[in-house]
Write a protein that binds this DNA or RNA. Sequence first.
DNA 1: GATGAATGAGTCTTCATTCAT
DNA 2: GATGAATGAAGACTCATTCAT
Lengths: 227, 227, 227, 227
Amino acid sequence: MNKKEKEMDKRSRIMAATEEVFSRRGYAQATIDEIIALADTGKGTVYKYFGSKDDLFYTLVSQKHCELMEQMQRVSDAAGKGIEEKLADILTVWIRFLRKNTVLWQVLCFEMTCSNRGYSAVETDCGALRLEARWGDLPPAEEQENILRYHRLLKEEIEPITNVYREGIRQDFFNKIAGHEDIAKNIFLAVAMLVFFHTTNNLEKISAEELADNIIKTRLYGLAGRK
Amino acid sequence: MNKKEKEMDKRSRIMAATEEVFSRRGYAQATIDEIIALADTGKGTVYKYFGSKDDLFYTLVSQKHCELMEQMQRVSDAAGKGIEEKLADILTVWIRFLRKNTVLWQVLCFEMTCSNRGYSAVETDCGALRLEARWGDLPPAEEQENILRYHRLLKEEIEPITNVYREGIRQDFFNKIAGHEDIAKNIFLAVAMLVFFHTTNNLEKISAEELADNIIKTRLYGLAGRK
Amino acid sequence: MNKKEKEMDKRSRIMAATEEVFSRRGYAQATIDEIIALADTGKGTVYKYFGSKDDLFYTLVSQKHCELMEQMQRVSDAAGKGIEEKLADILTVWIRFLRKNTVLWQVLCFEMTCSNRGYSAVETDCGALRLEARWGDLPPAEEQENILRYHRLLKEEIEPITNVYREGIRQDFFNKIAGHEDIAKNIFLAVAMLVFFHTTNNLEKISAEELADNIIKTRLYGLAGRK
Amino acid sequence: MNKKEKEMDKRSRIMAATEEVFSRRGYAQATIDEIIALADTGKGTVYKYFGSKDDLFYTLVSQKHCELMEQMQRVSDAAGKGIEEKLADILTVWIRFLRKNTVLWQVLCFEMTCSNRGYSAVETDCGALRLEARWGDLPPAEEQENILRYHRLLKEEIEPITNVYREGIRQDFFNKIAGHEDIAKNIFLAVAMLVFFHTTNNLEKISAEELADNIIKTRLYGLAGRK
DNA sequence: GATGAATGAGTCTTCATTCAT
DNA sequence: GATGAATGAAGACTCATTCAT
């Protein structure tokens, strides 16, 4: 095993331990000590590669995020599919992903975005995200940036479904009932919630495809019986 | 002011401070020190009345939970209303409540249920809740109980809408497409998610009634345009 | 022993331990652990009373500084003394003080003022002190303030002798050879240096009065023999 | 470029980086990482050539010390000069040197001699230096030696001026007022202090020669006006 | 009953030094 | 010979909880 391989070995062992520990404990409760014990490495090594606990977490979810985006892109790009099918495909990918990374994405959505500290990300005119405090003061610029990067991940993950939704609007596929394209986000988040609370319902046994299909059908055509 | 009143005064001042601090900081970031400073009381007093930080939080949300249940009960009990109207009324209550207690319920849903530590509450045959670890070991019995009580609150909050849903099923109001009554929970949680992420979408400016109505309409009759 | 007394007891025990440890190790090498071991107290207690390691040090030297200023003021105020006598008296106080607090003031002069990191304090027009970086960037405002307060102590300590020097100038007691009143500071600092390096010379055995007298005499009338 | 040259290149690049970093940060705050980044070399190389952080610093100041001694020797050896001129020349060299190496010599005087840890160097009968602890225990012999070598540098730097002073005594040039030859050291150190605190006084703008001349004049003939 | 001083286990983070390649 | 990945000891600081007054 050469130097490069050994280094990757360390890195990936740390990454694996990181995933396990954050998945087991959430962010705040996780400790670097547990990670290094699991990765069988020194504390310095972790800090050399990743810089800080926050960076460690970000690196982990960032990587997973990329995998997710790739899959979403693939199904989004698929030719010859209708709105309904596309939506179902994207949701399927999203559900599968969340089922594998439930805790991690829960932590990302709630702990890391600091939405539980009253911070929200709002879109500026130029499309960038800016942190806003619903009360109190904003943290120092550097910390803001750390928080914002998590918001950016989420924003990007919602985009594919938003795009399909826009396409549907153009094709006059959708009703014009409600808050327009926030609906896309709505579906997206609702599915997340569904998975986050999964074990308390029976939807877990259903395959991702089936679940996505159900959700899309219900959303598109409604729960009320057609008479 | 007699002894009893003075005591209640202390209690309620602590309670008010507790709400403010947990709402501002989430659970982990909140400190007893900030609470007593705000309540202008001693640390011992807090521990005498409430026993622990967790108990303090539970007492707070428990109280709010009762208020919520009362309101839900009231609209659920209203006579002469159709399924659609009842659902909209319950959702309106739920949305209003969450908008007032966003952070608190976010914390409750994710931090306190320890769903971010891989624990899930499953319903036993006798209708009770039991904690289950998706991996690793369960915590000591005492801690399990502390976690479970939060699950019980949530379960109870979902019930009113579940009941209406069941009624709709009986009246043949609903399609039979999907996971049956989990759908109720689905709507319920989706709405929570909507509020939790509120500032990032425009739905915030809409009144609770309007929002509830939109959601119900969309859910019942679908997003797809009727041809 | 009542509550107040007990509290003062803790505080003063911590203070005593602080003095001992900082005197033994300097600032950077000193550890809170050693201080609490010596004070036989908990770490939290130290942080409750003093906030941070830097505050701990500042509190200590600040207290000693006050004692020094009091003594300097006393001899400065003494009526019916000539320039020479006044200078000697102030120097005597200064020497005595430095001999008792050698390491502490050495640390204050060099470690705490961060002069070894390229920061200097310059006097603004309004007489206040401002930090300046001879290279690189200044630290955040908060840290600047922490550094400046040490400079302020030193500035205040030099004042009495500067005042006497100014008086001497007015009385035409001094030559006009050199950098005018910086000379006062010069003497002051030279004496500090003398004490800081004391054990390497024999001046240690001389009493503070004698030493002060020698220094003043030499400074005033010169080392060169009068022919 | 042959092997020898390449090696020297490495060495000198490390040395240059060492000077820059220690000058910018002092000793404790300086890190090997910053040095190797600046020298564009590997950490192992530094340790191969210099053994330890302390050795690195010592090598640096040792080299500068030699340059200083050379210059002092040159002006000391100059024929046909009086006491006053010789003193001024030596001081000029000293001032120039300190102005170029302010932080380095500050660190040397206070941090490296561990005078801020209560250790002092005393001269034994045979003229050698021995470490003494004003309290507590002395460090292990090896560390003592590391500390002593810095004291030796300083002692050697003071010698030229001490020699001239001795010559002045022999020539009956000096008064017999004070602590005899410690006076020489006194002047020497006072000048150091003057430079260490330079930005807080106006002496900085004066040329080294002028400053040296002023100091010598004032010291020799006194601050008090001749009537 | 109310208080708040005291506690100390637990965390993240830094950095000089080593050693296998 | 040069490298830099790996290490782990060490240190500042936080905060829930206790308990004597």
